[in-house]
Design a protein around this nucleic acid. Structure first.
Length: 834
RNA sequence: GCCCGGGUGGCGGAAUGGCAGACGCUUAGGACUUAAAAUCCUGCGGGGAUUUUUCCUCAUGUGGGUUCGACUCCCACCCCGGGCACCA
């Protein structure tokens, strides 16, 4: 009697897989390909079971596809740049590279311990120059195409650290994370941007290609994020400051323009200073402006802040009716959206309503509801915003039109008269990639006093990070205080010049890494397009919902840029996306800071990787959150022991039997029953793997089969070895994608000399799976009143006759008229009586 | 505020218009054992009747609807989770 020892079994098979290079793949146009990918980890701390769930799901998919005959690429790598490495380095007085590489080593050890079927030759680490060189190369291509540019932008600035803070470092509604008594300021500095907005339309339209393959909610989140909005830009001439160009506003409701009672500018609108310069209220205005500007740039804070503003003392003229309106400045108007200026229509917009109420600006109704209610601006308690349910009033020649008619007509009129233009704008903004940090990809440009901005020539790539930066967490970018990095010569004139000291957002690294996997060591190009042509698109991408917007949007953007550079031919990089649920402990996601992590390596040491893999697949469907339970994992452990024991029990008798042939006609009832259960299980497990991804119910089915084998014991005297062998082999193969090490071991115990990894997914035998006799419920008026054992495929009349003669059912039919019979063959009979 | 998910025993969950609670955990009992662990077997939603067998009844967040039949489809509401959020 052998015992299930996962430690030795797992080590043994991992070694054999590695020696046989089982998971190494090359592009081969003769074979159908499958690209299975899990989001690459950020190597920080230790891998816990939350991470492992992601990789386990991906590994099952990869292994099933491999058994199905696909040429499967399944790579892994490291998202190795990032702020935590820099912070840890400051804290521990080490180098970010050392900290990162230690973590990578630890991560790799754990992933290998779980036996994931990665092609490790394709491993990449984004902090290596051989990788980030291509970030720089792509950046230069975008610079050439005008897709990369510099502009002033607002950042969070801590006056004590003298440094830029990431949004996550602004805490308690506007304070520095290191100086909790210090208010964060908003500063404007020059930063690099990538023009994602140039692809706004395509990013939106191509979402259609993803329908069916991506979760609906991710598509919706992306659609909302891109935020397409159709409206019009209208110019309002400044009435009382000569020589100024008109102020342009964006509105989706040009139909309400006769109800505009003010024009409101964003605090950082360029006109604010010009209007105030000579204004009678300039002193008050300047003080108010300073106050408005000194608030956090965090989105949540802006959204919840009270509306505030002030009158500039100046006016504009409404081009539609010639009316003079005051110009205000309001904190709720965003410079980043539209034109940074709005027309306030308090009667028909809730934000304008709130603002105008507060500052006693007039409210004028210009759309009356169709329900006959007569709204009055002076008394209305809330604005009337509904589209398509009103008609225009107080709007001169447009009175009587519906809002939709008015939008069309007034837009056209504004264009004809030259003071407006119908336009579509997007919420999506250009991607700010500048980070004033050390541990990232240096942006490859040089500033020369004579030649200005000069891109680093391709031949000088990569621009490598200096090895010994001064990391303090204070002051400006660490690269700026590293003279040997900053000081260089101009590639054009050879004169003295300075390097750009910002590094790139780490989302750049993860926007195209999955392409590099296909050609990871190419020194002359980011990748060979022919290889991409074979492997792409990604057939299945698996990761957390947290990346539903940014990472996936940037990846889609990158793909389109590469397509337009002629590097790839597809529009979308990812065909199917799956977002798995989180692993919780004590109700919250596992995280180091909460101290509720279950370390993956320790888990494998205690129960074995196969038990850990099986449990995470069994405890919940993959898309739902999973509450970790130490008791339940023992159930998974028990089950694998049960499987091991039953195979061990019969292995001796089966070893010599080959080939496993038997005469189907000679099968006894017990053999037939076992084969039936095995093939029925196979049928349903196959469908759970292929179409539904219900790994939890697939495992339940395999458990049922195991229970049935146990219940049929002893098998020795009544079930011939050939049949026992078939049933146990099916059991082994069905488990193989989930518990690969144990399955290999069982396969060997069953007498196979070749590894299970060479086996295909088994095909179920329709004949064996078929039931001869089925038990069906019989309902009377929808209530179950009895059960009948019938021959499979029995005719309706025969079944109804049996039901009428059944002692349990007959009393419910007595003295009633049979009105209707519903018979679902082999499923159910429902008799309706009155 | 808007947009997605979700609500089923003590717990995780199963059932994609056809026997609600598969499978597992927990737990109770039994077998084996000097004993324990492990293992194997059995029971386990609530209420009622029947006292060995079984039968009835209630039950999938709440209230309606469609249907012979609803956890499943439709309408309204409540609660929980997530995302976006002064986007003009």
């Amino acid at each position: 009697m052998a015992e299930y020892n996962p430690q030795s079994i797992e080590a043994k098979w991992q070694k054999r897989w590695e020696d046989a290079r089982v998971f190494e793949t090359e592009a081969d146009p003769a074979k159908p390909k499958y690209y299975a990918l899990e989001m690459l980890p950020y190597p920080s701390g230790t891998l816990h079971m939350g991470h492992m769930r992601n990789y386990t799901i991906g590994d099952v998919v990869a292994r099933v596809k491999r058994m199905r005959g696909f040429n499967v690429i399944h790579p892994m790598g490291w998202d190795a740049f990032g702020l935590p490495a820099e912070n840890a380095a400051i804290k521990n007085k080490t180098h970010p590279r050392e900290w990162t590489n230690n973590n990578i080593a630890e991560f790799q050890r754990t992933l290998r311990r779980f036996g994931f079927s990665y092609d490790w030759r394709r491993e990449i680490s984004t902090c290596e120059p051989e990788y980030y060189k291509w970030n720089q190369w792509f950046f230069l291509r975008m610079l050439e195409k005008g897709l990369a540019y510099r502009k002033k932008s607002r950042v969070n600035w801590c006056p004590k650290c003298c440094t830029v803070l990431a949004n996550e470092q602004v805490i308690n509604g506007g304070y520095c994370w290191r100086h909790e008594d210090t208010l964060v300021e908003v500063r404007e500095i020059e930063q690099w941007f990538l023009k994602t907005t140039a692809y706004a339309d395509q990013l939106l339209d191509d979402l259609k290609q993803l329908e069916g393959g991506w979760p609906d909610r991710v598509i919706t989140m992306q659609r909302n994020w891109i935020g397409k909005s159709q409206g019009a830009k209208v110019k309002f001439a400044v009435a009382d400051v000569p020589g100024l160009d008109p102020i342009e506003v964006f509105t989706t409701r040009i139909d309400t323009i006769f109800g505009a009672t003010a024009l409101i500018l964003a605090p950082n609108h360029p006109y604010v200073a010009k209007l105030l310069e000579t204004s009678p209220v300039r002193h008050h205005g300047a003080a108010m402006l300073a106050r408005l500007k000194k608030s956090s740039v965090k989105a949540e804070d802006i959204a919840t802040a009270e509306k505030q503003g002030f009158f500039t003392g100046r006016h504009v003229t409404n081009p539609f009716n010639g009316e003079k309106m005051p110009i205000w400045v309001g904190n709720f108007v965003l410079m980043e959206y539209g034109t940074g200026a709005i027309m306030a229509v308090p009667a028909h917009d809730s934000r304008d309503f709130e603002f105008c109420k507060k500052y006693n600006l007039p409210i004028r109704v210009v759309v009356q509801p169709l329900n006959g209610e007569a709204l009055d601006g002076a008394t209305m308690a809330e604005p009337f915003e509904e589209h398509g349910q009103g008609k225009l009033v107080n709007s001169g020649p447009y009175n009587g039109l519906s809002p939709d008619e008015a939008i069309a007509k007034m837009g056209a009129d504004a264009e004809a008269k030259g003071f407006g233009k119908r336009e579509t704008i997007f919420r999506l903004r250009d991607w700010g990639i500048s980070r004033q940090r050390y541990w990232g990809t240096p942006i490859p440009v040089i500033y020369c006093e004579k030649d200005g901005l000069v891109p680093v020539p391709d031949k000088d790539l990569p621009v490598v990070l200096p090895p010994n930066p001064k990391l303090t967490g204070e002051g400006e970018s660490p690269l700026a205080s590293t003279p040997e990095f900053v000081n260089t010569t101009c590639p054009k004139c050879g004169g003295p010049a300075r390097r750009e000291t910002d590094t790139m957002d780490t989302f750049v690294d993860s926007s195209w890494y999955f392409y590099r996997y296909c050609d990871p060591h190419n020194a002359g190009a980011p990748f060979d397009s022919a290889k991409i042509g074979y492997w792409f698109p990604i057939d299945q991408y698996i990761g957390g919902i947290t990346h539903a917007i940014l990472h996936l949007l940037y990846s889609r953007f990158w793909c389109k840029v590469m397509r337009d550079l002629g590097l790839v031919t597809h529009d979308e990089p990812i065909k199917r996306l799956f977002t798995q649920g989180m692993v919780l402990k004590g109700g919250t996601a596992m995280s180091k800071s909460k101290g509720n992590v279950v370390g993956a390596y320790e888990m494998a040491e205690k129960f074995g990787a196969d038990t850990g893999r099986l449990y995470t697949l069994f405890a919940a469907p993959p898309e739902k959150d999973l509450e970790w339970s130490e008791e339940s994992i023992e159930g998974a452990w028990r089950f694998l022991n049960r499987v091991f024991r039953v195979v061990d029990r019969h292995a001796e008798a089966l070893r010599g039997i080959s080939p496993r042939k038997y005469d189907a006609a000679s099968l006894n009832e017990k053999e037939k029953a076992l084969l039936r259960k095995a093939h029925q299980t196979l049928r349903r497990v196959t469908s759970d793997f292929e179409t539904r991804w219900h790994f939890n119910s697939a495992i339940a089915l395999v458990m049922e089969l195991t229970n049935e084998i146990y219940a049929a014991e002893p098998l020795e005297d009544s079930v011939r070895p050939e049949v026992r062998g078939e049933v146990l082999e099916l059991l082994t193969l069905m488990l193989a994608p989930m518990t690969p090490h144990l399955s290999e071991e069982l396969w060997e115990m069953l007498g196979h000399t070749e590894g299970l990894w060479k086996s295909s997914w088994p095909t179920y035998n329709e004949e064996f799976a078929r039931e001869n006799e089925v038990e069906i419920p019989v309902q009377v008026n929808g209530r179950v009143r009895g059960r009948l054992k019938i021959a499979a495929g029995a005719k309706e009349d025969a079944v109804v006759g049996m039901a009428q003669g059944d002692s349990a059912i007959a009393p419910h039919l007595a003295n009633k008229r049979l009105v209707k019979k519903i018979y679902v063959p082999d499923k159910l009979l429902n008799l309706v009586v009155a």
